[in-house]
């Protein structure tokens, strides 16, 4: 590359790069820095506070992320297998809709649907399935968050998994069908192993996004412990102005995402370069 071209290309790259570095990369590093500071003193107190106050919240967050991810992947793997073997355009279209519905709206919709006095309970009470004096609350608990995350992420998972399945040539399936493989065997023996790599990337991506979900638990969380980690970070800053602990909690969330994030970053950049 000619030197003048090198300089020109760096100038072109500079503005977008500057914004992301200034407003993401530096704040990212500074949260690590601030997490060790308390009243301008270097200390580990923030982390001991995180351990004392938030260790169950961290487990709670991981639990929700794992359960939601497992549910999303299980449903997507089977549903996409069905859609791949027997095409069903209407269902395929339906499952694209949540892609275009923002997380906040999903949170609100699920709040209206799943609250103790929500629409679901009134439907169920009509058929006499629940007791009106003690209506179950799915929202305001981990189930409500999980249901919302599953509902929203299922669309993405269906899109990615179906894409991976579609890139498996039809003849691979025909060869199996020829020997009498049922739809389930075609999914288990052919589609799933042949698209395992794409599935892993999709899973990594969704796991981080669930771990970091903020608007959904904010909308349908109960306001009482246990909370998801992002809510803790937000409350810590909004109500206590305690940046040290909030950032320590933030660093913990980075570490939780680290394993999958590393895998995700590596595969995506390898694919591109």
């Amino acid at each position: 590359m000619r030197p003048s071209l090198r300089i020109a290309s760096l100038i072109i790259a500079l503005p977008p790069l500057a914004i992301v570095v200034w407003l993401f990369f530096i704040p990212f590093l500074s949260s690590a820095h601030l997490s060790f500071l308390r009243e301008d003193q270097w200390t580990l107190r923030n982390y001991s506070l995180v351990w004392r106050l938030y260790r169950y919240d961290i487990l709670y967050t991981l639990w929700i992320a794992f359960v939601s991810l497992a549910a999303v992947l299980l449903i997507a793997v089977l549903l996409c297998g069905y859609l791949r073997v027997h095409t069903n355009k209407p269902v395929e279209f339906l499952f694209k809709i949540p892609l275009f519905i923002p997380f906040v709206v999903v949170g609100h919709a699920m709040r209206v649907l799943l609250a103790p006095k929500g629409t679901l309970n009134s439907v169920l009470s009509q058929v006499g399935l629940i007791n009106l004096n003690d209506p179950p609350s799915i929202a305001f608990g981990w189930m409500g968050i999980a249901v919302s995350l599953i509902w929203k992420n299922l669309a993405l998972a269906v899109l990615l998994v179906l894409g991976a399945y579609r890139s498996v040539d039809e003849t691979y399936l025909e060869a199996a069908r020829n020997f009498g493989a049922s739809a389930f065997r075609q999914i288990r023996d052919i589609l799933l192993p042949m698209s395992a790599a794409s599935l892993a990337v999709a899973g990594a991506f969704m796991f981080t996004s669930m771990l970091a979900s903020f608007s959904v638990p904010l909308m349908i969380g109960s306001g009482e412990p246990p909370q998801m980690v992002m809510i803790d970070v937000y409350y810590r800053i909004n109500y206590q102005g305690d940046y040290g602990t909030a950032n320590a909690l933030g660093v913990v969330s980075y570490l939780l995402a680290m394993g999958v994030a590393g895998y995700y970053l590596r595969t995506i950049t390898q694919k591109e370069t």
């Binding site: 977008p16 790069l17 992301v20 570095v21 200034w22 407003l23 993401f24 990369f25 530096i26 704040p27 990212f28 500074s30 949260s31 601030l34 991506f205 981080t208 771990l211 970091a212 903020f214 992002m230 970070v233 937000y234 800053i237 940046y243 909030a246 950032n247 909690l249 933030g250 660093v251 969330s253 980075y254 995402a257 994030a261 995700y264 970053l265 995506i268 950049t269």
Partner: peptide, 21 residues
Amino acid sequence: MIFLLPQAFPQLPVFVNSTTL
């Protein structure tokens, strides 16, 4: 890599500090 970071890590704890900036 830099353009992938915001997708790979939780945004909220970072944006808390971006807000300060």
